[in-house]
Design a binder for these strands. Structure first.
Lengths: 205, 205
DNA sequence: CCCAAACATAGAACGTGTTCCTATTATGGG
DNA sequence: CCCATAATAGGAACACGTTCTATGTTTGGG
């Protein structure tokens, strides 16, 4: 999703210290690249470190575990998506239509990179309490995306009711479960889309 | 789907050499014991093998991975719960009340054994495509439990409508997400119960 | 300019899931 | 009873996440 390739070391023109900056970004880019090709298993810490051209210990200084690394990658992707979506109005005649539109778009995007999605989703699922803050951030993005879609435009904070949040959380739950079913091969892409659509209509009826 | 261990052949000749008795059951029992005390991390394959008094290779013959082992344990627990619930009528005046009753009961049961629940849930979450059939079985039990609760009594197969199944799946999704949030320390037990209750009322309104 | 502290590197080492190998022990058909 | 085959035991070996150690290298305040 991000710039295709910061993997190739771009240290040609800038000598020394310029290449020392942006380790975090290099690491995340390497993570995306490896995940895109081989999924969760291919994101091996030694491989990430080598790809990002940092030492293993440095990788662990930036991300204290493989799960932190992948959930942080997911977090970045989600807040990017949230930002992109916030820039425009969501098409659709009612909340249900708009939410379905947005979720289908999100889902299609993720299904376009199955291995990457598998890596990020499984990390998210496996995360334990130590990753709570990153997971919380992802949840916030998800809720924000859905409430935005429900309202059609970025809502004023005090325009979001208690019920909106409950609805958004439930929709987020369903979306996550559907994504998981797809990632683990228990349902096809069309089935996933259909399940999400049905559930949203049901919840926002 | 009626008996607890549909997977095992459950050899009935249990007299004879006691030590040979049902390795599968010994393994699952050891798994429960270790999980109950120390959660996911404490379920170490060498420890399970030793506890169950089988060789490591034998353990892997019965369960091809730690995830298979734990998801199978979850499967057993779920189909036990399903069986117990099927034996009686569910109290409650409408579908929503009954579903909430059952889910609260289930949730309380799992929260009574936090470490065990953490182990089983995280394994379930982490499972990949190779565990699809076990995961599917868990999903079936879940759906069955919920449709049962919706109807109040074990429904005839043809009394279950398409919509029932959709409702049950959505409820299952929410329940799973709530359980996950609790397991990873992102929400407390009361919050979890409240979220489930709110969501069920919303879905079955 | 100098030095202490923070940051990086390379790589060894360790733990646990998983695989593999060999010898031994049940099992069931003839 | 005997043998072929499968199942099990016991344990070495390997892979990858993670931690640790020893040694530079950068950086910012005096």
């Amino acid at each position: 999703m991000t710039t295709a390739n910061a993997l190739s070391e771009e240290r040609s023109d800038n000598s020394g210290s310029a290449a020392q900056r942006d380790r975090r970004k290099r690491i995340l880019d390497a993570t995306y690249e490896l995940a895109k090709d081989g999924g969760f298993d291919a994101v091996q810490m030694r491989a990430v470190a080598e790809s990002a051209d940092v030492a293993l210990g440095t990788l662990y200084r930036y991300f204290p575990s493989k799960i932190h690394l992948l959930v942080s990658a997911l977090e970045t992707q989600f807040s990017d998506a949230q930002e992109r979506l916030n820039m425009r109005e969501i098409p659709g005649d009612d909340a249900g239509e708009r939410v379905i539109y947005v979720l289908k778009r999100l889902t299609r995007g993720m299904q376009g990179d199955p291995q990457l999605t598998e890596a990020l989703t499984r990390a998210f699922m496996f995360a334990d309490a130590s990753v709570a803050s990153e997971i919380h951030a992802v949840g916030m993005s998800m809720t924000s995306i859905v409430t935005h879609a429900m309202h059609g435009t970025v809502p004023e904070p005090d325009a979001i009711t208690e019920e909106d949040v409950v609805l958004a959380r439930v929709i987020g739950d369903v979306w996550l479960s559907a994504l998981m079913a797809w990632v683990t091969g228990r349902s096809t892409a069309p089935e996933t889309a259909h399940h999400i659509e049905t559930a949203v209509r049901l919840i926002l009826r």
